[in-house]
Design a protein around this nucleic acid. Structure first.
Lengths: 156, 156
DNA sequence: AGATAATTTTAGCACAAGCTATATTTTGTA
DNA sequence: TACAAAATATAGCTTGTGCTAAAATTATCT
């Protein structure tokens, strides 16, 4: 029996010391996203990047993606395999990557959202460097309604 | 030799079809965060939750954390081990979890940021349910400067 | 105090994303 | 056309977060 904090040991259900800051349900619900949705974020990043590269270079190659993402080419290849499996992209061995229709659709949405978030942050008064960095992070978590609110602010 | 898209095969460095939408450097730099920083996000979520539970129930138990996070208690335990290793929390076998000073500091910062982001979204006109959900997602990606801008907006 | 319930731990699995090192294929050029 | 350089693929490892099932511990209640 390891000695330990036997502070509050009896009936520890005082439930409302500070009162729930947010509802338990809401917290659990939103946290549900947090996990496997990391894969979705990666998909969004890749798809947008692939679309960019095709526009800029005519094709999306693993080497260039790796360079921009700051990971090795092996990691890119493996992730591309997953994206292929999930129907976002197509690719043949030793060839570059292309978006499926579904992938292109996602890329378009993601880019529009990204640009809106960036514009929004800039208009809000965030220095460009920070705005660009933060946009990369938060864009995946902006719901349509928040996006709409940002749009109103930017345009209004 | 697998048959494939030999579309643009020659010297594919036309580099500026659409012109770089953002600087390559900036993109790579910000993506560097995207990877292992997922662990940081999880740490922030846990630390804030532990602090909440201690305030509400007097202690933070794996069972309660699991309930709120929507994961199994086993997952919680394993993650707690990681957090312990990283110096955010302490715990003894079969006992509840406590924050280190460093952990408490993080929790305070995280909560303040969370509340600010939520207030901000609400003032921006985002419906409460969406605001709460989005706040959970984006809070981890809000830099101090963006946070400051949000504060100005909320208070101004 | 002893039985039972609740909680935590351990063991073992999967999967995604990261890495290095090495082999293979394609591409560019002498 | 051959050879060297560049790009891609394969093998095999790590870490983090998820899971279930079963064992061990702690807490509760009569």
């Amino acid at each position: 029996m390891p000695p330990a904090s036997k502070a509050k040991s009896k009936k520890t259900k005082k439930k409302a010391a500070t009162a729930a800051r947010r509802s338990v349900e809401a917290t659990a619900r939103s946290h549900e996203r947090t996990r496997s949705d990391h894969a979705r974020e990666i998909a969004e990043d890749y798809v947008e990047l692939i679309d960019d590269l095709i526009a800029e270079c005519g094709e999306a190659r693993a080497v260039d993606m790796a360079k921009r993402l700051g990971v090795t080419q092996v990691t890119v290849t493996k992730t591309i395999e997953r994206l292929k499996k999930d129907g976002w992209v197509t690719s043949e061995p030793y060839r570059s990557v292309f978006l499926t229709d579904k992938g292109k659709e996602l890329a378009d949405y993601v880019r529009a959202r990204h640009e809106m978030v960036l514009e929004f942050l800039l208009k809000l008064g965030v220095p460009r460097a920070d705005a660009e960095a933060d946009a990369e992070g938060i864009e995946h978590h902006i719901s349509p309604r928040t996006l709409a609110a940002m749009k109103r602010y930017v345009e209004g």
